[in-house]
Simulated assay, not measured.
Amino acid sequence: MERRALLTGIGTAAVAALAGCASSADPGDDGDDTPTDTPTDTPDPEPRMTDTTFTVTDVSSGTQRDEASVAFGGDTVTVEGTIWGANGCKTGRLLGAEYDAAADELTVTVGTKDREDAGDGCTQAIVEIRYRATATFEGGLPGTVVVTHDHGDGGKDVTTATQ
């Protein structure tokens, strides 16, 4: 009989000890132990150039014009411009489109070359070569675009645009 009393006393003491632990819980704790996601600052992805295109839209007699405009839209940067050629055998070409992530700057360089179908008879008049260049990006667009025209003399900046 004394054994039953001893076991009952131990059981009661254990329940009381556990009840004390439960009552010392944080008063603001609702008992839901589901972990919560802590929002973290994830950096925006850096822009990455994925494609470029270049098209000559017109070649006609003209003057030594070097001009360009830049448009930012969606996932593309579009450059439309005019570069001059020394004679009627010239056409435009994309010399380079390079994105510098550290500077957040796209540089588009346009030059001239002899037309493949020009033959031997070329006018000796200056021609204006109108073009369109596009650069497609993922993860945003560059902050700055510099357009350079190179006539074989190292080139010069024609325009700089920022968004």
Rank of each mutant, 00 (worst) to 15 (best):
A25N: 10
T12N: 06
E98I: 08
L7Q: 15
D33S: 10
Q163E: 15
G139A: 01
P142Q: 12
L94K: 01
H151D: 05
I129N: 03
H149F: 01
T112E: 07
T91G: 14
E116A: 06
T136H: 06
N87Y: 00
D66F: 11
I10V: 15
T53H: 07
T42Y: 05
N87P: 00
V79Y: 04
D117S: 12
D104S: 02
P47A: 04
T63G: 08
L141F: 00
E116S: 12
D120E: 09
V56A: 02
P47K: 14
M49R: 15
G155Q: 09
P35C: 14
P47Y: 12
K90L: 07
T107K: 00
R93V: 11
G119A: 07
L6T: 06
P43S: 08
A135Q: 06
Q124I: 10
Y131G: 00
S24D: 10
P27N: 08
R48M: 06
G85Q: 05
Q64G: 08
A101E: 11
G85H: 03
A118V: 15
G143C: 01
G73T: 08
S60W: 04
G152R: 13
T12D: 04
R3W: 14
T162G: 13
T159W: 10
E138D: 14
C122R: 01
L95P: 00
T134D: 01
G73E: 13
G121N: 14
N87K: 06
T159I: 04
S69R: 15
T57R: 09
T136A: 12
G62A: 03
T107A: 12
P39W: 09
A102W: 01
N87G: 00
A101K: 06
D37Y: 10
F54P: 05
A133D: 05
A19P: 10
T78G: 01
P39C: 11
T50F: 05
D75A: 03
G140S: 14
